[in-house]
Amino acid sequence: MSETVSFGYQDIDAAEKAGRVGEIFSNVAAKYDIMNDAMSGGMHRLWKDRFVRRVKPQPGEAILDMAGGTGDIAFRMAAHGASVTVSDINQEMLDVGIERALERGIDGLVWSRQNAEELSYSRGTFDAYTIAFGIRNVTHIAKALAEAHRVLNYGGRFYCLEFSTTEWPGFKEAYDLYSHKLVPQLGKAIAGDEDSYRYLIESIRRFPDMPSFEAMIREAGFENTRVEPIMGGLVAIHSGWKV
């Protein structure tokens, strides 16, 4: 029997997921950053600032920003002098990031189309690996985590920013109503794409909870793992070290 994986609330053949997710991000690439502001009320900017503070990028460090798409995380890390490679499986997302970098006069970034499950880089290439709001869209999360571990130097660090499940009483119910009812309508109004944003919300609900995902990071070989919930776990920063 063929392997099935989640695609929003559906279960589909694993071989289909990368293509279907790729189609979604091709559809939303042009309006991706505008929609992030609309969906989060601009709060995604604060979450990303906090994330990069935890990463602590240093001048000259080699950092791989996976699923880096439109460059939001990479721009912040490059401002600290890090040498950042921005990778994404979707070329349209990378194209938006390259255009944004040109508009801002940001150079020195490396842009590379990569599959998180099968990176082309050699073992021990990077000092840090970051992925923000991307790992839940990977077909085989365990493979992506194993690849992150492989391409890091010993002493290298892994940081992941991802949606999770808020544990604040009352807020969870309100957020569920907002995300399932209003976010797809925002997608329709702003990006002309209701279905893609319905999938993105459903993919959050199918993603492992904080303890389960931390366990997956440990199983990939990382030590000293940590979870930092934001807004009660609506968003979480996961980290680990290759030692």
Rank of each mutant, 00 (worst) to 15 (best):
G156R: 00
A146M: 00
N137Y: 14
A148W: 09
L161I: 12
F133W: 09
R136K: 15
V110I: 11
L109Y: 13
R136A: 11
H149T: 01
C160I: 07
G124S: 12
A142G: 03
T130P: 13
E118P: 00
R157F: 01
H149Q: 07
A144G: 14
D127C: 08
A142L: 02
I141N: 02
Y159V: 05
H149R: 04
T130V: 15
G108D: 13
V151D: 06
F126V: 11
C160L: 08
N153R: 15
A132H: 11
G155R: 07
T130G: 11
D127Y: 10
F158S: 04
E118C: 05
A132L: 12
L109Q: 11
D127V: 14
G134E: 13
T139P: 01
N115L: 06
V110Y: 05
G156W: 00
N137F: 14
R123A: 11
L145W: 07
T125P: 04
Q114D: 05
N137V: 12
G156K: 01
S122A: 15
C160H: 04
L161W: 14
N115V: 02
G134L: 15
G124I: 00
L161P: 12
Y159R: 05
L152V: 01
D127I: 12
A144I: 07
V151Y: 04
A142R: 09
T130Q: 11
K143L: 12
L109C: 12
G134D: 11
E147H: 08
G155L: 06
A148K: 04
A148C: 05
R136I: 04
T139R: 08
R150K: 08
Y154S: 08
A116L: 07
E118Y: 03
Y159G: 03
T139N: 05
R157H: 08
S120R: 10
N153M: 11
F133N: 10
G134W: 14
E117I: 00
G156P: 05
V151F: 07
